[in-house]
Design a protein around this nucleic acid. Structure first.
Lengths: 334, 334
DNA sequence: CTGTTAGCGCTTTCAC
DNA sequence: GTGAAAGCGCTAACAG
């Protein structure tokens, strides 16, 4: 039924070992023999069985990628970076969505490990002790991308979220704003949540602006969640003249809510955030934001993982990539 | 080093077969024995090797999903539907991005087949003879989702794109429009391209409106591509009073281009499209569009695939799911 | 209810 | 350059 390496060997009049060598590009095969084998493969329509190969060689040339939320375009962009480098090094990637659920993340990590992936990339989200525990039960290398663990003991690739937020708020301050509200993510989230909030606080602090509790609302990163936050801000007095959103998606929700209330962005209220998703240049006004290099985060973390899988020495296990303010039209420049 | 089923057997004082039964939830094990085995597993930290299991059982409980473009939110939503049903039937899914490149699609299909997936889901895009050929070289079932092949010989789940487009254009006609332009996808694409164009043509025809060549521009489904199309339309005389876009993303580009030119949507030019991506309710004005049930397309195709993998009989191999007009604010209702 | 025994399809020494 | 043979870790008859 299915044609195996043995069938090919017989058809070509050689041993399985030789066929294996040909398939794996081992140079120790006479060109003529190689040709015979290729012909037999062609004739029989042989397709190597990666499962059998994986069992025999104890390598699958596959890396597992756990993605917290497949419908989030940020992760999609990171995934592209991962893919490109993976292809370059001849690894296949298997992407597993975890729905932003911790329990599912752990389950997915275990599934991937059972499938004997050669390495693991864990994207975004919170990295708990349970995650670390799951990683430890395996012997394959793991790289965190777009996040890091509390103790910073694991290899990771990320931006400096606090500094990014700091820079964003400073754009607002430089434009003359003093009444600056923030739509934050949950403070439980060390990267997109807590760190960005810290950056906001420090920027205000550095400018001698007092932090006002009612100027901070917690959202869930979704468009809808910023609608409520902004409605709340709109009732305040003094009403904020600028809003710093932890993410672009919430910023876009903010812009629309402001506009729906009859106010103008940036004239009445300026808006800035961090991420630079594709949509940021698709709204009106276009969104001023701090870009994180999503593709590079993916690419660099995959590259780091290849080194780890090859047991190459690596100097820097905790990579921080640079970010950059993208000036568009949701903040009036000074 | 790695602990195997054999180690567990020894530790628990039973045979490998018994351990295998316990791990696979085979009822033919005395509760007490089962307990002993579980304890041994726990003590040793045993994790079953899915690769070995796959080789021995010739089943991987894994289905491969090829996704044309991971950064396209439509596919992401379809993927959610696939995932949910896959989990329900205890299949893992491995997602492979193909960058909308035919060559890469074929390569990915072959990789997946080498990995011995139990079934294949092929999402969106054009299905050529080469694709069919690749599918045929394998013995596992394949379901197309969100697309279909020319000859409709393969199992598939999709909407009636032509009818969806027809309905969209009719909304415009019902609102009194006669000068209706279209931003189409490539006519090579049977689903999102050709079929939607056909629907446009037929709707005009049914209303006795003559088709004008200059009222049709071809885009590439991206936001940017509709900018040029709309600029072209704006110069025309008579200027169209409504635009039908083959996809939401291009429709959003259209709306912004119209607004940037100083005109208003829907007062000066109405816009409608097909898809209903999340962003459709996030733009201003919110986008009137024909919704395709993305989650369901994924869910139904995965369900169909499970039936095929179990060799259950299935009456309907070419499923067409219903679509629905979502009235929002980019078309003034009559 | 449990153990024995063949493989699954391939890689990988080790000889020749 | 090539072949023989021993597994990789597990499942699946088949016995008992």
């Amino acid at each position: 039924m299915t044609v195996t390496i043995y069938d090919v060997a017989r058809e070509a009049g050689v041993s399985m070992a030789t066929v294996s060598r040909v398939v794996n590009n081992n140079p120790n095969v006479k060109p003529q023999t190689r040709k015979k084998v290729f012909e037999a493969i062609e004739r029989l329509g042989y397709r190597p069985n990666a499962v059998a190969r994986g069992l025999a060689s104890k390598k699958t040339t596959t890396v597992g990628v756990v993605i917290p939320d497949i419908s989030n375009s940020i992760f999609a962009e990171v995934a592209r970076g991962i893919e490109d480098i993976a292809n370059m090094y001849h690894y296949n990637i298997i992407l597993c969505n975890a729905d932003k659920k911790k329990e599912k993340e752990i389950r997915v990590i275990n599934t991937l490990l059972e499938k004997q992936v050669d390495g693991l990339l864990f994207m975004g989200g919170v990295v708990t002790a349970d995650h670390i525990q799951a990683f430890r039960t395996s012997s394959v290398p793991v790289v965190l991308c777009g996040t890091k663990d509390e103790e910073q003991t694991m290899p990771s690739v990320d931006i400096d979220h606090e500094k990014a937020a700091f820079d964003a708020v400073n754009v607002l301050i430089a434009a003359g704003h003093r009444d600056i509200a923030m739509i934050s993510g949950t403070l439980q989230d060390p990267a997109n949540g807590f760190a960005r909030y810290q950056g906001y606080k420090k920027a205000l602090d550095a400018a001698g602006i007092e932090l006002r509790d009612e100027y901070v609302r917690i959202g869930n990163y979704r468009y809808e969640s910023s609608v409520d936050a902004v409605k709340y801000f709109l009732e305040l007095s003094p009403r904020p003249t600028a809003i710093f959103s932890a993410t672009d998606e919430m910023a876009i929700g903010a812009i629309h809510t402001i506009q729906d209330s009859g106010l103008k962005v940036p004239q009445d209220i300026a808006v800035i955030s961090v991420d630079n998703i594709r949509m940021a240049s698709m709204v009106r006004p276009t969104l001023t934001t701090v870009a994180q290099p999503m593709y590079d985060i993916g690419a660099v973390s995959m590259r780091l993982l290849t080194k780890l899988m090859n047991k190459e020495s690596t100097d820097n296990m905790q990579v921080i990539l640079p970010h950059e303010v993208i000036y568009r039209n949701s903040v009036t420049q000074a």
